[in-house]
Nucleic acid binder design. Structure first.
Lengths: 293, 293
DNA sequence: ATGGCCGATCAGAGATACTGATACACGTGG
DNA sequence: CCACGTGTATCAGTATCTCTGATCGGCCAT
């Protein structure tokens, strides 16, 4: 199970095509076909059904493992490189959209201590933050998400990365101000909202899939899916009645109503992610953020 | 970073010798030397200091990743095989010593439902249980350990394995009955015991390293190390005054005294580990165990 | 029916990964 | 301090592997 073969397999499964995967990987279609054949004969079972190209059950099992394995290999390489290379001159940060907001004050503090620091901040999806920090593309990452009050975030791929909790906030249901449930003092449980019109904004707010898992319910169907990272757009959508979403209280503006979410008991949490820190500047940011709790 | 190279690297680091690793792996010394050279030139840094053979800091980083990566590769292979192969006729179980005790009643129940089931039980160290279940050597594993009351066990290598809590018990300090602290109604915190004579039995009782981490203390030095899995021997050692150890209450016999451990707040927990279960018998054991909570 | 698309297969060239032999370096014991 | 022995590095050669490019064959859409 050569990592090259795994990478090819993942790419083929992702593309749904041998030829497309070949192009993306810079191989010939022939090579890709041989890669998959090698894997299949090694494991003794078909991994993909052809035409159309779909993973078999065995292929699905392998896919579950292949991604994390490849990520971990990158993380290993990055970790080794970090112990050798001298610390980078620019501080490379990544954050998921709602986590980025915790950064400004902490960064200001660091700027005072290390005035010459060049900084780069990338806002992207949670998985990309985790993958990027693991692979060494980013020095530090900030990821937000929901969790039970006592548990840390469940960052499946974050093995071998250090995490520190940097902030938490209560979760609220964001509603149009005119919504009948938007009365002051009102509290809600997810059960009350099983049949509501939901906006699923998985890169920005609490993903509906996560809420379903936490509620143990199979309801909560999205009426509207927002694939974007812009908070203002989401709030506008909510405000104009396209649906509701679960957000940390501090993310809301006055033009949408916030009703605290009581059950299941969940909080919004922001965590700092990093590998081994040899860079004093990065370490300063890390401690500045942790202290700000 | 071919897995073969990683395996060689791990073996060399473990043996402390190229030639010994070569023999263990069935290669020539020349091949091993070339493997390491390839890895080092790929990563652009020395990984081992030679003569004596010791990992460099970069090598240590890589070692931290290499083991889990290789384990995960095995787990992937095992997971794929499981979806293809028909369920094994004998139920292969593994358990850490103190976890094995939860098995008997559950197994009896299964024997009633599936009378023809052949069973094999291996008792071994916690890590070996986790590795064996991941690699598919065992169908089910039971691991015990200590954790805070709300958290699950911290099974670092158990990625992609399902875990279910099957039992918990209060932790007590086991002392000779004649010990001055062994008064009825007495309660203890780890801080009180910083300077006590400890028996470290990492494969059997709560490892001192774990207790140190939980207490946040650097005290707790072992006066006696017991590398073994036999509970009776450990209790005898404790009873005859060689030192004390932290154990689940239910493990003790009347010839040693038990004083509840109050701080840090920890419990003894037993968890069931398994991959994807296709085997109905294994599933029966799994549910029988979970229900027994 | 037929053309286009896509995956499988095949043969051959280049790269790789071993072995066995040998050179070299370090730590040790005299 | 030198010589020896143990243990790693290097080298050359061969067997194997892994690509490419060409070709075949099957399925679907027109």
């Amino acid at each position: 199970m050569d990592p090259h073969l795994l990478r090819t397999f993942v790419t083929v499964a992702d593309c749904g095509s041998f030829s497309a995967a070949a192009e993306r990987l810079g191989y010939t279609q022939s090579a890709v076909s041989q890669h998959i054949a090698t894997l299949e004969s090694d494991l003794g079972t078909p991994l993909l059904r052809r035409r159309p190209v779909v993973p078999t059950p065995a292929g699905e099992r392998l896919l579950e493992h292949a991604g994390p394995i490849l990520l971990r290999l990158d993380a290993a390489r990055a970790d080794v490189r970090r112990t050798v290379a001298d610390p980078p001159s620019t501080l490379t940060l990544a954050a998921s959209p709602l986590a980025a907001r915790s950064l400004a004050t902490a960064l200001a503090e660091v700027r005072r201590t290390y005035p010459g620091t060049e900084t780069s901040l990338t806002v992207c999806g949670r998985d990309q933050v985790v993958a990027g920090v693991a692979a060494g593309t980013f020095t530090l990452g900030l990821v937000d998400g929901i969790a039970t009050p006592t548990d840390p975030l469940n960052l499946t791929n974050a093995v071998q990365l250090r995490t520190t909790s940097v902030a938490h906030d209560t979760l609220v249901v964001a509603l149009p101000t005119t919504h009948p449930l938007a009365r002051p003092g009102r509290r809600l449980s997810l059960g009350d909202l099983a049949d509501a019109r939901w906006i699923d904004a998985p890169d920005l707010a609490a993903p509906l899939a996560t809420l379903r898992a936490a509620a143990g319910s199979n309801a909560l169907r999205p009426a509207f899916t927002y694939n974007g990272t812009d908070l203002h757009t989401l709030l506008t959508l909510i405000g104009s009645g396209h649906g509701l979403a679960v957000l940390p209280r501090s993310a809301l503006t006055p033009d949408v109503a916030a009703v605290p979410l009581t059950t299941p008991r969940l909080v919004h949490r922001t965590e700092l992610l990093h590998g081994h820190l040899s860079d004093p500047t990065a370490e300063a940011v890390a401690t500045a953020l942790s202290d700000h709790e």
